[in-house]
Design a protein around this nucleic acid. Structure first.
Lengths: 239, 239
DNA sequence: ACCTGAACACCGTTCAAGT
DNA sequence: ACCTGAACACCGTTCAAGT
């Protein structure tokens, strides 16, 4: 169990396998094909090895994904001590988004599969708890504020970077655009009126992923909303 | 294109197929096996038909999932006119969570895959825009507030209902509990101290899904945080 | 119009065997 | 200790054929 998490030896193609080399290659493959399109056999092909060779280093496909995600989140480092809790939250949200944007294909796993718990560095949890304690939360309300903070950090980015169906992406996109054009203006007047605005960068309405069309301003708005909300909840707190 | 979205004829096993019957059966199978474990061949078996027969009614596996999700979200109905925008948001969040809790297996698709855009009723989008306009948002800030509201509605529930790995759930759970016990108390003092609190119902720390261990209070806290946050952002708005 | 049936190109994982 | 190689029980989707 002496796994060395930092690890990042360049994946020399010649020499023998190692857990880390396998995970690095797995992350690279996921980056290219997406989690859904990621296959053990493809990975083995990339490594020039029989598929079953991987099972010596890693228990199975799930562990490959969890390990690759952990690798991607390894960059998410503690950062320097923030001036106040709000600044800390702002910096944390930005760092998290940046780390995921470096490997957007892992986004669908992050919030949506419990396996990803395994990939989140404990230091990150510690950091969030510390920020919230400094904000004045404790006991049960600390837990609720913490859950709020995690949902806030992960939720938006998961939605923003949600991938198109891998089957026929541009076919799906044009079909969805059509669906949105066809919305009944009498039943949905506001939607119909705001359509030009929304088509380019609004959840549900858009036909593109945040990888191609980042929602930077909405993300800032979101971050401030969570911070303001927590600030308000803090004052409601029972001592 | 005269599909009847309400549709809910009981899936008579004897007579011939229909798009709706196929989707109802697909949703039922997803409920049982999860989206990852859902297979076209299993569905065909359930319907007593050759796998390829389904391709007459539906273009493929993706469409089956999207259709099933749309079916599940069909229950999410407009509800009565709210007294004020905040009450509207509160009611909306509750209704959404309730609808997803009725079919928790669809949660991983909802925020994390763009296909789910296809499954969201346009009336829902309209309703959200209306609430935010009433709150005083317009133009670009309306879009940001809307994205915030969608992320707020979907984000928490997606995290809460994230499924365990289908491979070996209880094996994973005990392993994760161990991982959390083994956290270094010197490096993560707050986490170590709050562990008893957090183990039962905190994201990342927990080893169970929200299906078994609902996070009701955290969800309420989350909802109020988003509402308070939006209220604060509203006052910052440029006219 | 709706379904059968065979076929294709894949999967993840097992287990015994090699070195 | 680490990898090969064959084998098992699956996949989603195609296309021609039936009725």
């Amino acid at each position: 169990m002496t796994t060395t998490p930092p690890a990042s030896a360049p994946p020399k193609p010649g020499d023998s396998l190692s857990r880390d080399a396998v995970l690095v290659a797995a992350l690279a493959l996921i980056d290219r094909k997406g989690v859904a399109g990621f296959s053990v056999r493809d990975l083995a092909r990339d490594l020039g090895v029989y598929p079953t060779a991987l099972y010596w280093h890693v228990p199975g496909r799930n562990a490959l994904i969890a390990g690759a995600v952990a690798m991607a989140l390894g960059d998410l480092k503690p950062a320097r001590r923030p001036t106040d809790w709000a600044a800390g939250v702002r910096a944390l949200f930005r760092r998290y988004r940046k780390a995921v944007r470096a490997h957007p294909a892992i986004a669908p796993v992050l919030g949506a599969q419990l396996v990803s718990n395994e990939s989140m560095p404990p230091e990150l949890v510690e950091h969030m708890l510390m920020l919230l304690e400094r904000a004045g939360f404790s006991g049960d309300r600390l837990r609720h504020a913490y859950n709020t903070l995690v949902a806030g950090m992960v939720g938006f980015v998961t939605l923003e970077l949600a991938p198109l169906p891998e089957e026929d992406p541009e076919g799906w996109a044009t079909a969805h655009r059509q669906r949105m054009q066809d919305v009944d203006a009498r039943q949905c007047p506001t939607l119909a009126r705001e359509m030009p605005h929304l088509a380019r960068g609004a959840f549900v309405v858009r036909a593109s992923s945040g990888v191609d069309q980042p929602l930077d301003q909405s993300f800032e708005f979101w971050t401030e909303t969570v911070i303001q909300g927590l600030a308000a909840m803090r004052e409601r707190s029972a001592p």
